[in-house]
Simulated scan of single mutants.
Amino acid sequence: MSRIAAKFAALRAEGRRAFVSYVMAGDPDYATSLDLVRGLPGAGVDIVELGVPFTDPMADGPTIQQAGQRALAQGMTLDRTLDMVRAFREGDDTTPIVMMGYYNPIYSRGVAAFLKDAKAAGVDGLIVVDLPPEEDDELCLPALASGIDFIRLATPTTDDARLPRVLQNTSGFVYYVSITGITGAAAPEAADVAPEVARIKAATDLPVIVGFGIRTPDSARAIAAIADGCVVGSAIVAELASGKSVADVLAFTADLARGAHSA
Rank of each mutant, 00 (worst) to 15 (best):
A145G: 04
M58N: 03
R70A: 03
P142D: 02
Y22D: 12
R86D: 04
G147H: 04
G125P: 07
R89G: 11
D136E: 13
G110L: 08
S108I: 03
Q66S: 12
A31C: 09
A118L: 00
S21T: 14
D92A: 09
P62G: 08
R38W: 02
A25G: 15
V52Y: 03
L40H: 06
K116R: 15
L126T: 03
P105C: 00
R38E: 12
P62D: 13
R38Y: 02
R109T: 14
A31D: 15
Q69F: 13
Y30I: 12
K116A: 15
A10S: 15
E49N: 11
S33Y: 06
D93K: 15
A112I: 01
V23L: 11
A25T: 11
L115W: 01
V52I: 15
C140Q: 11
P57K: 01
R16K: 15
T94N: 13
Q65Y: 02
A71I: 04
V123N: 07
R70D: 03
E49Y: 06
A145S: 10
V37Y: 01
P53W: 05
V111G: 07
I64Q: 00
R70W: 03
L115K: 05
D136R: 13
D27P: 07
R80L: 09
V111L: 09
M99K: 05
L82K: 04
E134G: 05
G61N: 07
L115N: 04
L82Y: 03
S108E: 07
I64P: 01
L115H: 05
A59N: 09
L36D: 09
A71S: 12
D35M: 07
P57S: 07
R12S: 11
Y102G: 10
Q66R: 14
A145Y: 01
I64E: 00
V85Y: 02
R16S: 10
I64A: 10
S146F: 00
L11I: 06
I97T: 13
D79S: 15
L144R: 15
D27H: 11
D46C: 10
L11H: 03
D93Y: 03
I148F: 10
P133R: 03
G68D: 13
L141W: 01
L40K: 04
L144D: 09
P142V: 01
N104L: 01
L50A: 08
Y102R: 03
